[in-house]
């Protein structure tokens, strides 16, 4: 066999080389790519914006109110004549409502995740999943209505000295709101457990319950824990339910029957009032906002890390 090269290289080179048209086209592509990149960067700018805004308003606040007072004073009365700037009562209010919410959402969410992934026939899943989606899509202001005008009157019949605004109803309603979050994320984690693991356990004579609790749940544990953490983050940042139903009284208590005030509800309270912008009183909402942001950020970061890790394991 004999092979030769045809002497067309020169012509071809001219035609394969990037000409003016190709350069224009590449510039256009670059311009489009830059625009798209800019759009993606907006999320980064948003985060930077949040941090700057919180710091710019919170730093002057901390020049007037020492960090020690902020963290150790047990009273929060910035809007009164006798001013105290201790965040403890707001923090306690937030943690109290969140604890109540998680005490409901975590067991119920996890149990329904286990039911949906390990037990439920396809027909039941087809009914339950959309209901959970609807539940997750209901605006929080509607849950606030439900907490104040349905849950509280109902609970009052059982708990006589329950105050009209209280941490318990707000927390429980928040728990209902968070169930779909726990349930769907935990179910995702359970779903990612390879069936071969389950089959191995069945082959050893395990019952369905044993497979669910001793095989599936432990294997999905990191994802389940991540869903709990995200639920906590969500509860801490939730605003309307507590603003409507938990009260506006920043007291340091762990009694869920009493009216309290959360960090988020305080921000709403000031926003609705006529406190002038630029004053120390108004800056309190940015100091509180900063604390809120740091809390949720930390929780989110931990959850994201955990999720990333278990995704890698089962890839």
């Amino acid at each position: 066999m004999e092979l030769t090269t045809r002497p067309v290289a020169l012509i071809t080179r001219a035609r394969l080389q990037r000409g003016i048209a190709a350069q224009w086209r590449e510039w256009g592509e670059l311009a489009i790519q830059s625009l798209l990149f800019f759009a993606a960067m907006i999320s980064v700018f948003t985060t930077i914006g949040i941090v700057i805004v919180l710091l710019v308003e919170a730093l002057p606040f901390f020049q007037q109110v020492s960090l020690v007072e902020f963290l150790t004073d047990t009273q929060w009365t910035p809007l009164f004549a006798q001013k105290h700037f201790g965040i403890a009562p707001l923090l306690a209010g937030t943690l109290l409502t969140s604890a109540v919410a998680l005490a409901l959402a975590i067991p119920v969410g996890l149990l329904s995740a286990i039911y949906l992934s390990e037990y439920a026939p396809a027909r039941v899943r087809a009914i339950i999943k959309p209901i959970l989606e609807i539940l997750a899509g209901i605006p929080t202001v509607v849950y606030g209505y439900f907490a104040l005008l349905f849950v509280t009157p109902l609970l009052k019949r059982v708990i006589p000295n329950l105050e009209t605004f209280n941490a318990l109803s707000a927390g429980l309603t928040m728990g209902i709101m968070i169930i779909p979050l726990v349930s769907s994320l935990s179910e995702d984690a359970l779903y990612a457990v390879p069936n071969s693991l389950r089959e191995a356990a069945y082959a050893l004579g395990a019952t369905r319950l044993e497979v669910a609790l001793r095989v599936a749940v432990p294997a999905a544990l990191s994802g389940i824990v991540a869903s709990f953490i995200l639920a906590a983050s969500r509860a801490i940042g939730e605003t309307m339910i507590v603003a409507i139903a938990a009260g506006q009284r920043p007291i340091l208590t762990l009694d869920p029957r009493r009216a309290i005030e959360t960090m988020t509800a305080y921000i709403v309270q000031v926003s609705l009032g006529d406190t002038p912008h630029g004053t120390l009183e108004f800056r309190t909402i940015f100091a509180v906002g900063l604390v809120l942001f740091l809390f949720t950020l930390a929780l989110n970061m931990i959850a994201i890390r955990i999720i990333q890790r278990y995704r890698e394991v089962y890839r």
Partner: peptide, 16 residues
């Protein structure tokens, strides 16, 4: 960053 932003409480966006 996008994952994190999805978890930032909506009221923080209000402050922004």
């Amino acid at each position: 960053n996008i994952n994190n932003l999805a978890g930032v409480p909506s009221i923080i966006y209000g402050l922004l």
